[in-house]
């Protein structure tokens, strides 16, 4: 455990801040990569998921593709892309987007699917256009599951962005790989601790957002269900 203390001291050491390999710089890179990946993956996956959820078409295809991506080792994907497009940020970025899409996609379409068919039927019957049904009924009611998908994706991306530096993409992986190379255990631990903190931060952030976006009418008036208390069970995944 002595090593563990050394790891924490490594994180706290002011000498390890500032400059290209400073902890602050690397945390910034890590968060920027993760955020960028989530934005790009969302731009692709949310509209696609909404189309699947609204029309009910392409669902089995989406599930199949998501299952296939689960089996695909991200490290291998990242490295083979790096070999093609060269080292740097692009390869990990692409690999992470591929990794993030299934969760967000599943969150988007399962959010729509979770909406009571009768509510949608009624919305159509009173004269809502298809766009109004999507915008006023399906999107607000599907939001908790979409955020659940984003939550999973965010966790996966922050965790996996650690591998980015293996191909020179920057981020917190630097401390781990530099530590492994020079047998500097405290440095490895320092990198690990910070990544874990970021992951937990992401979880806390998204779980609060998830609670906030549950439409008031959905929870109101129901006896407290064990499942509702734990937002995790509402999380969608593909």
């Amino acid at each position: 455990m002595n090593l563990f203390v050394q790891g924490i001291l490594w994180v706290l050491n002011p000498a390890h801040y500032g400059g290209v390999d400073g902890i602050d710089t690397r945390v910034g890179q890590h968060l920027l990569i993760s955020l960028g990946v989530l934005v790009v993956a969302s731009i692709i996956a949310i509209p696609l998921g909404y189309v699947i959820g609204h029309t009910g078409r392409g669902r089995s295809l989406a599930i199949g593709a998501s299952g296939a991506i689960r089996a695909l080792p991200t490290l291998g994907l990242l490295i083979i892309i790096a070999l093609i497009v060269n080292v740097g940020l692009l390869a990990p970025f692409i690999a992470l987007v591929v990794l993030a899409i299934p969760s967000i996609l599943a969150g988007a379409y399962s959010g729509f699917e979770a909406v009571d068919r009768r509510a949608i039927d009624a919305a159509r019957a009173v004269g809502m256009t298809e766009f109004q049904i999507v915008g006023r009924v399906e999107i607000p009611l599907g939001l908790p599951l979409l955020i659940g998908g984003l939550r999973t994706a965010s966790l996966q991306v922050i965790a996996t962005a650690t591998l980015a530096d293996y191909v020179g993409g920057g981020g917190l992986g630097h401390f781990i790989f530099a530590g492994v190379k020079t047998n500097d255990y405290p440095q490895m631990l320092a990198g690990s601790i910070i990544v874990i903190l970021l992951a937990i931060l992401s979880e806390v952030l998204f779980s609060s957002v998830q609670r906030l976006v549950i439409p008031a009418g959905v929870t109101a008036g129901r006896p407290q269900d064990v499942r509702v208390k734990s937002p995790r069970s509402r999380t969608a995944l593909g």
């Binding site: 455990m1 563990f4 650690t162 490895m188 874990i196 734990s230």
Partner: peptide, 28 residues
């Protein structure tokens, strides 16, 4: 009933730990 929330929260946190960092901390 009491155990469900507690157990699932603890396991949820465990699940949130990225694997590479866990591979590095476990030897300790």
């Amino acid at each position: 009933r009491w155990s469900r929330g507690t157990l699932l929260t603890v396991l949820g946190l465990l699940y949130a730990i990225p694997s590479l960092p866990l591979f590095i901390i476990l030897p300790l």
